[in-house]
């Protein structure tokens, strides 16, 4: 059942054997360790959140949504490269 996560850490320990080839994981500025997919995901999440907030609070002031998109894209590039 759901709760089986209770031991998800323990069995993983079993996995921590020589079998697991070391994958180069650089540690970026994000507080958790991530691969490129995670960072892409995070970027998309941020982009959507920014867009929605932009629609609500900033667009009525007259600033186009494209500004938000550009910022989000830059942020995404930064996160994916450096995260």
């Amino acid at each position: 059942m759901a709760s089986k996560m209770e031991n998800i850490d323990k069995p993983i320990d079993i996995l921590d054997d020589a079998n697991a080839p070391p994958i180069a994981e650089k540690s970026g500025f994000l507080p958790i360790e991530t691969n490129w997919f995670d960072r892409l995901f995070i970027s998309v999440v941020i982009w959507v959140a920014m867009s929605l907030l932009w629609f609500r609070f900033i667009e009525p002031l007259g600033l186009s949504i494209w500004i938000s998109n550009v910022i989000a894209l830059a942020l995404a590039a930064f996160i994916i490269a450096k995260g």
Binding site: M1, K4, M5, N7, I8, K10, P11, I14
Partner: peptide, 16 residues
Amino acid sequence: PFAIWTLRPTVDGIPK
């Protein structure tokens, strides 16, 4: 999804 969520710890729990 539910099955995977539930079964994963079980399978993980079988000593490798």
